[in-house]
Amino acid sequence: MTAATVERPAPSGLAAGAGYRVTPWRVLRSEWTKLRSLRSTLFSLLAAIVFVVALGCLISWARVQHWDQESPLERLRFDPTGVSLSGVFLAQLAIGVLGVLTFSGEYGTGMIRATLTAVPHRLPVLWAKAVVFAAVTFVLMTISSFTAFLLGQGVLSSRHIDTTLGHPGVLTAVLGGGLYLTVVGLLGVGLGALIRSTAGGIATLFGILLVLPLIVHFLPSNWSDNIDPYLPSSAGQAILSVVHDPTSMAPWNGFALFCGYAAVALAGAAVALRRRDA
């Protein structure tokens, strides 16, 4: 444990010789290491998977049990895809928190200072975090969404009230489960970088997704009808429904708008990251 082991031919020689330098690809690898080396990542993702799959099966099972008591109107409105994907609404909590934590966790612990001294250009860190997070979430949540759908339809088939991926809009909705959750997470990444605090980031994210629609419903109805479809939550969730509500946006249009909101949050994060002291 002495300094004698620090070997160095000439100061500053190492950087030039070995090709050590910061590249976007290397920052991506670093962010992957960071993501996979935290227990909170593991727990959040595991929780999200369980929520999507288990809740979908549970609700499907409940509907099967009560099918005989349901009114004709309820039966008419029954959306087997939506029922099997209902866990997405719970999973968004876990994914949203994980998204916020990617930055707020670093600000909270001081890690951000180490990160930004390694990558003083800063923006590669934001893009790398967003890409790694989006890739991991999309893969896992898409798999979960399909699993929930298939298992859910299996449960519903006992009453012959199931559907298949071949029906119009169903494939989009099942894919939408993974897509919606990924973008919720990205919105969280952007808000976490902007707000820096975990509590503040989570409160803002779910304020936007869960509380804002409730408040809008208290507005005069001709206002709320015009505002509600364009709220981040309504726009983003349009892709999840097969039975289409004429007041809401079309699935892909809504999803594009939701992506736009996330992009605004990430752009704000980029500006803040460049401008503000770490």
């Binding site: 590249t23 290397r26 290491t33 960071k34 966790g105 612990t109 890690m111 001294t117």
Partner: peptide, 29 residues
């Protein structure tokens, strides 16, 4: 070029020392 030990701790408390250093090292190859 520059190695810095800052006043406030700059480590994520949930990560191991090895992974912390590895993540920093990887940004530079």
């Amino acid at each position: 070029e520059v190695g810095a030990l800052l006043e406030a701790r700059s480590v994520h408390s949930g990560r191991s020392a090895h992974n912390h250093l590895l993540a920093l090292a990887q940004t530079h190859g």
